[in-house]
Amino acid sequence: MILSPAERAYLYESLVQKPAIRPGARSDHQFRPLEAKTGFLPNSNGSARIRLNDGSECIISVKSKVVVTRGESSLIEVDIDVPGFRDDSNFVSNLKFSLTNLLITKFPVEYLRLTSKYSFKLFIDCIVISHSSYPLSLISLTSYLALKTTRLPLLTSEVNDEEIEEQPTFSDDWDNAKYIHPTFQPPIFITLGVIGENLLFDPSIEEEQVLENGLILSFYKDKVITPIINMNLATNSNNSNFKGLNQKLIIQSINLCNKYCPAIIKALDTLIEQDDENDDTDNHIF
């Protein structure tokens, strides 16, 4: 995306004001409104979809498989597909690295242990149907919904199968299936744009073009955690404003996320509750 010099200058000047005047009049810490739906893929253990007003959309499916714990290097495998980008492109690979890294290091693996020998392995498949701004936080919010609503069949065989040769058996009744863990909150990513002294949550594609830097923070269990990285969010464009960061802004970004991200988690949880309540009455997903 190319902006004209006058557009860039106007946008930059507006965004460095205190407080920043963003094109959609969003406040610094305001996300774009989302439309979300969970549990609509009947063949998946968990599924979720998030759509933005500008048409950006991500669908995630979580499937599980029983594996021998010892034979697996990790119990979570992530795959991301973005139309228009090759699977081995830098863009997709970095999204995949980020999400895999976050989930592998932060996901409480003990929740997936079935017996002393066997575990569930989760396969998280993401499709970014359309996106304008950098889609990592879109993907991660969707993965939050999908993982949080993932249900796994109830184990009926013995937990301790050290001496037993048989494979674990499960309850036939899907209604007995359980969520991964009642209090489980998957970790999420937050993208922040750095411009002047301002930190902008969830920058839009226009804003990304004039940002001085971008930060990606992770948030889990009500506080900011690692990984924390910086990157140029304006992919495929020549961002002439891109420059180094002031260290103070990193500290500030942690404080801001600690302050505002609980609201995001709360909004996501509220949506899941609503989806649970009218499971059958309300079927449209579009």
Binding site: Q30, F31, P33, L34, A36, F201, K259, A263, L268, I285
Partner: peptide
């Protein structure tokens, strides 16, 4: 702090 100040997440509606 109001959740609505930070993010609004709604269900898709066809109407």
């Amino acid at each position: 702090m109001e959740v609505a100040e930070v993010i609004s997440i709604t269900k898709p509606s066809s109407s």
